[in-house]
Amino acid sequence: MRIIVVEDEPLVAQRIVRLSKQILRSDLVSISIQSTLEGAINYLQEHCIDLLLLDLNLNGKDGFEVLKQAVAQAFHTVIISANTDKAVAAFEFGVLDFVSKPVTVKRLQTAFERYHSSETGAARSTKYLSIRKPQGLTLIDVEDIRYIQGSGIYAEIHLQKGESELHDKSLNVLESILPASFIRIHRSFIVNLRDASHFRSHGGSKYDLVLHNAETLPVSRTRYKYIKHRLP
């Protein structure tokens, strides 16, 4: 795993690195510390990472702008902060986890496990997805999403109004942060269950999911039973 720690307190950063090494051992490919926002942004432009461990309070600057920027990218973000009252808001922006300071080995381990876990986030409270556009960041309300189609390392988000947006996160990453109403129906599709209407059989245990607007999406065989169970 490739990790970047963005933290302005050297000792705290050092501690996070120490604990990460202790937990991940050989799984840890690289870990870098950035103490400023600018440094972090520069680093991210040149390096590919899997996980961002972010302090919400950097040199007196409010971390939410950083957070919106971070969650628009492909990697997962875990917040490490002393201000636990910011946790709810952070989750709304689609972070994987929120670890409060001082960080314990056990708690950090849970966060890493959450990263590795392929389970859908049963109790995620993500409300917005942050999308990078040439003109800047845009926030999408997850309630506006009809379904998401995977296309390589990107995801194409189809909205209620018929538009679609590209997101830097893969379907796997998105699946782990989206609320429980979003389920993976296919290798390439995540659907908002609220928009699902019924199944259409093609015979031979091959099914499509028909949405309220009559669009059809393929359903993988292995998931059919589970999805049928959850369909409203």
């Binding site: 307190e9 000792l11 705290v12 050092q14 501690r15 120490r18 309070n57 002393a82 201000n83 636990t84 409060s100 300071k101 001082p102 960080v103």
Partner: peptide
């Protein structure tokens, strides 16, 4: 305030080992 105390405590944790 938590930002001050928690960061101090965490720094302290690190110093204790380091």
């Amino acid at each position: 305030q938590p930002h001050f105390i928690m960061n101090s405590l965490m720094s302290l944790q690190e110093l204790l080992e380091d």
